[in-house]
């Protein structure tokens, strides 16, 4: 495993920890999109179906379990926890997330590395992950007071995607036959979605002012 990949996984982990910290200690999910969190739970459930069948390494298994457990825990908090769920900004989290699941499934059925159940679900999860951040970005645009933890959560999530691209470039030149068009193209699309956010995040950080996204 190269340094980019490890750094990418770690920023992904940090993003989840930041979000759980906010929800668990402050008991607030203000500014957090439940739609995005539900999509991530679906992404991990579809991709890690083979968790107990296909063993890669202890590291891989532990990380998969962490991402599965954390995504479902966050959804549980936002839907069921009696204090947290009251802080959910339902009125502004209106992205029709169900309508992007079906196209991703169709895309997974059409574009996959092999027409088997696991491969179709894997491709589906890759496509869905690429667009899963959209409801969160829309909600951020509509949020007047974006708190630091929410902004940092999205920043770390975006950083994870950027680092994965560096990881692929590194692997392309160091490993023979390392070509995964599906994850590369979907991954680049996913990273581009963060472009706007990054621009305003860095601007707010440089000028030392609160983050605000123009509508």
């Amino acid at each position: 495993m190269n340094l980019f990949r490890l750094a990418g996984d770690m920023t992904h982990l940090v993003s989840v920890v930041v979000l759980l910290l906010k929800i668990h200690t402050i008991k607030s999910c203000a500014g957090v999109s439940l739609k995005t969190q539900e999509l991530y739970a679906l992404v991990f459930a579809a991709r890690y179906l083979d968790l107990f069948v296909h063993f890669v390494s202890l590291y891989n298994t532990v990380m998969k379990l962490v991402f599965l457990a954390s995504s479902f825990t966050i959804v549980w908090y936002m839907r069921r926890h009696k204090i947290v769920r009251r802080t959910y900004d339902k009125e502004h989290d209106t992205f029709r997330h169900h309508f992007i699941v079906l196209p991703c499934l169709v895309l997974g059925l059409l574009l996959n590395e092999k027409f088997t159940f696991r491969e179709v679900m894997w491709a589906f999860s890759i496509y869905l992950e690429a667009v899963a951040i959209l409801p969160q970005l829309v909600l951020l645009q509509r949020t007047r007071n974006i708190d630091n933890l929410t902004a940092q959560y999205v920043f770390f999530l975006g950083a994870y995607r950027v680092l994965y691209i560096f990881n692929w470039i590194y692997r392309y030149f160091t490993e023979p036959h390392f070509v995964h068009w599906i994850s590369w193209i979907a991954g680049i699309v996913q990273t581009l979605l963060y472009g706007d956010f990054f621009y305003y995040y860095i601007l707010s950080w440089k000028n030392n002012v609160k983050l605000e996204l123009p509508a």
Partner: peptide, 10 residues
Amino acid sequence: KDAFEKKDEL
């Protein structure tokens, strides 16, 4: 090894 066995990323 089939394609799936080669997938080692999260």
